[in-house]
Design a protein around this nucleic acid. Structure first.
Lengths: 361, 361
DNA sequence: CTGTTAGCGCATTCAA
DNA sequence: TTGAATGCGCTAACAG
């Protein structure tokens, strides 16, 4: 119906005509899948160049029923942790001639199955995902059944047989909580964003609780601050924490973004960070270094985690490598937001940064 | 290796058999492209549900030679500005049943043409891109010739006929520079990361220069800080700036990430921000609110820009809407890093935040 | 070494 | 209302 001179699409047939050979020969030259005479090869290459021909991935994929794309499902790009991981995935995928099909759930676990289905309908070669809850997850089970390779990032699945790249969330949070305890803090709370919809967050809480109990201190229930709520809401919640007589002197936050937000809200309330309250985060986002005082946190190799997850996809595609859970090393990074507990000292000097505690691995 | 029953791929043919009809009828039911008898329709729907059939996008696309994917090319996901824009694109694409094919150049302009080619080879429905230099860009010209819809984000092309979503970079930088001037600053420098490879950065410099000249002040050449260099390198460059007698009291940075880094380096040098030097950024990243002091900046609707760019892709696909450059509104947001010039006052109180200057539009 | 051809999954035209 | 047949761009099996 469109006129006859549409943007003349160049197919393998166009090239064949121009080079004076069959489409099979063109295909052979392009893919190096079989020997061809030098003359014909030269003519084909010339034709390809002149016409600017790029083989359609569509046709190519329809044969193999597999594309050179890898699907990605993450909660949100707005969190620099996920952005960094995706950056790592993209770089690694590109090195392998693949492209990312990117989707986000906006932290809505109900969207996970449909996004995965969408990506599977696109015949992705594999999937890298961060889900709300990896353990006993039916969507993942379905992928297992269909034999589609996938690797989790950040999730730390309890099911065996699931591939994942993560850190030991409990050990890491325990380590950073220990640092607070070592600095003389006794009343320490765990602050979580979206606790209910994040298995990572719960793991981290477990690490906090273990550290507290081991030290003979009381592990309190997590304080929940809605991720999406505004600063005023956070402030209200925080004010109630400090209303009672038995104020906390240390806050362990389930991630860095939350920690920065909490520290900001506390200062807005007129509380000194770290003079009156120490705040530690989790992840080690780049901006933590830039702010003043710098954010004390658990540094995790987020970009590398994305890269590694993508590597594992290809390892699975190549048939080797059974699905395994890889725990990458973390480092507790002391920072300006962590000081000795105010009860023990008047000056409350920040803790120096010697020889940071490293992960067991 | 898994049992003998290969992951039995379910195609439209499987469904047709199960429903006892032809594949054409199945197709009609699924797409609602023609009327079918209620009985047959019911059988088909049942079969689809039982088998968990999802039509392959591959086969579907091969017919139309167009996929339900949109290609994205950005410099890097690590910059929250691009991450936010991509988040906007993803949300809008999802609303329209499309998926993003995401690639990054790592700020290497030479990679732009090849990434675009890769995406075109995937038969994307359109492209959203941020390029190093939009004006007279041959890659974009090639897209025009092939009739593939594309929309630029952040770039502010000088060529007509190019679709783009951006802010008026010059006007915005002029406005924020004017704010510094109004605060009594006289010696103000423009600091850029990767000046050579970013037309946005150059536009912003123009705005700075115009503000300075208009105020009868001297516009200095841009100070270049390599984006990827470490803090120490930044520090060395900055120290040389303050070595001379005629020290700047205000720094206009070409983006927020750079501004935060600069402010951090200055403090590490023992300089008070904003007591001795005011620092302003550009973009309005979320973290700017969280840090203390808050970052003075130009707030731009980054997420919305991504959304809008995606909307424009679909408008072009639907045939309406000629390619246009849309400049979205910006707001100068004063913040804690901006104070009156130290020469004019001893106390150097931060400027209040009254009635922020808005964009002309 | 090269050409012909079948077929990947689907939408669609043409017959019935 | 339905089915049979065609073709989208490509790769690979088979002939020559």
């Amino acid at each position: 119906m469109e006129g006859h001179r549409l943007p003349r699409v160049i197919t393998i047939r166009t090239v064949a005509e121009r080079a004076g050979c069959s489409i099979a020969t063109v295909s052979r030259v392009i893919n190096g899948s079989a020997r061809t005479s030098p003359q014909v090869e030269a003519r084909v290459r010339a034709a390809v160049k002149e016409l600017g021909f790029r083989p359609s991935e569509l046709g190519r994929s329809l044969k193999s029923l597999r594309t050179r794309t890898v699907g990605v499902v993450i909660p949100s790009l707005t969190n620099p942790v996920f952005a960094a991981a995706v950056a790592g995935m993209e770089a690694e995928a590109r090195r392998r001639g693949h492209t990312l099909l990117l989707t986000a759930t906006d932290y809505d676990a109900l969207r996970e199955p449909e996004l995965v289905e969408t990506l599977v309908a696109q015949s992705v070669a594999g999937l890298v995902l961060t889900v709300s809850n990896a353990t006993g997850n039916p969507t993942l089970d379905a992928l297992d059944e269909e034999g589609i390779p996938y690797v989790l990032v950040f999730n730390e699945p309890e099911d065996s047989g699931r591939a994942a790249v993560c850190v030991d969330n409990a050990a890491a949070t325990r380590a950073v909580t220990d640092t607070l305890i070592a600095a003389g803090h006794r009343r320490i709370l765990f602050v979580a964003g979206r606790f209910a919809t994040s298995d990572r967050s719960r793991r981290r809480y477990d690490g906090y609780a273990l550290a507290m109990v081991t030290a003979g201190l009381s592990a309190e229930p997590p304080v929940e601050l809605d991720y999406l709520a505004d600063l005023d809401t956070h402030r209200a919640t925080l004010e109630s924490l400090f209303a009672s007589g038995d104020r906390p002197t240390g806050l362990v936050c389930s991630n860095d973004l939350l920690a920065l937000s909490v520290a900001g809200a506390l200062r807005a309330m007129g509380m000194g960070v770290p003079q009156e309250v120490s705040v530690v985060g989790f992840d080690g986002i780049a901006l933590g270094h830039m702010v003043q005082p710098t954010l004390a946190t658990v540094e995790t190799p987020t970009r590398r985690m994305g890269e590694r997850a993508m590597e594992m996809i290809f390892e699975q595609l190549e048939g080797q490598a059974p699905p395994t859970v890889e725990r990458l090393p973390f480092v507790v990074r002391p920072g300006g937001t962590l000081a000795r507990a105010p009860a023990l000292t008047d000056a409350a000097p920040p803790i120096p940064e010697p020889d940071p505690a490293t992960s067991p691995k």
